[in-house]
């Protein structure tokens, strides 16, 4: 059973590329397994848990509910586009300083949703409720995620 293949153009974390994908392939699987960007995690594959969240043309999107071919011509940003181990972004620093992660599996998706919220100028309340509300974390009880968001919004986010 060979699936139909189609060539798509993507800009992933600033890098332009053209790749062949199965038309049925999920964007999450293409990012992880074809492009090796394994920072995007897959938690439920039905769009509820939010672990797979990435940015497509700046909008936070569930990559497990998106076919790769739907992203043809789009700019994609994943957690790998944020800071590095030796130079964390301000948001990543806030998560580390506030113990906003434990196992770290849900964390990349949360970070990407927060990136979009920050760029869109969402206020703290909206971010804590609507934006964080799109993510399931089983380890932290959310308290320290909220603390990280509060710290980052207080320090770095300009309205």
């Amino acid at each position: 059973m060979k699936a139909e293949i189609r060539k798509i153009a993507l800009t992933v974390n600033g890098q332009q590329m053209s790749i062949d994908v199965e038309v049925r392939a999920l964007l999450s699987d293409v990012l992880r397994h074809d492009l090796g960007l394994t920072g995007t995690h897959v938690g439920c594959e039905h769009g509820v848990c939010g672990a797979c969240t990435i940015l497509i043309d700046g909008e936070s999107t569930r990559s497990c509910l998106t076919l790769a071919v739907q992203a043809d011509g789009c700019a994609i940003e994943t957690v790998e586009s944020l800071g590095s181990v030796s130079s964390l972004s301000a948001l990543q620093e806030a998560f580390r300083d506030n113990h906003g992660l434990q196992c770290g599996f849900c964390t990349p998706g949360i970070l990407m949703s927060l990136c979009a919220a920050e760029r869109h100028g969402e206020d703290l309340e909206e971010t804590l409720t609507e934006v964080l509300g799109g993510h399931i974390c089983r380890c932290t009880g959310y308290q320290n995620i909220r603390a990280a968001i509060e710290a980052h919004w207080a320090k770095s986010v300009t309205r």
């Binding site: 960007l37 394994t38 920072g39 995007t40 994943t78 957690v79 790998e80 944020l82 800071g83 590095s84 181990v85 030796s86 964390l88 990543q92 998560f95 580390r96 992660l101 196992c103 770290g104 964390t107 990349p108 970070l111």
Partner: peptide
Amino acid sequence: DPKLLTGG
């Protein structure tokens, strides 16, 4: 944490 926060 740095590893987990950067997708590493």
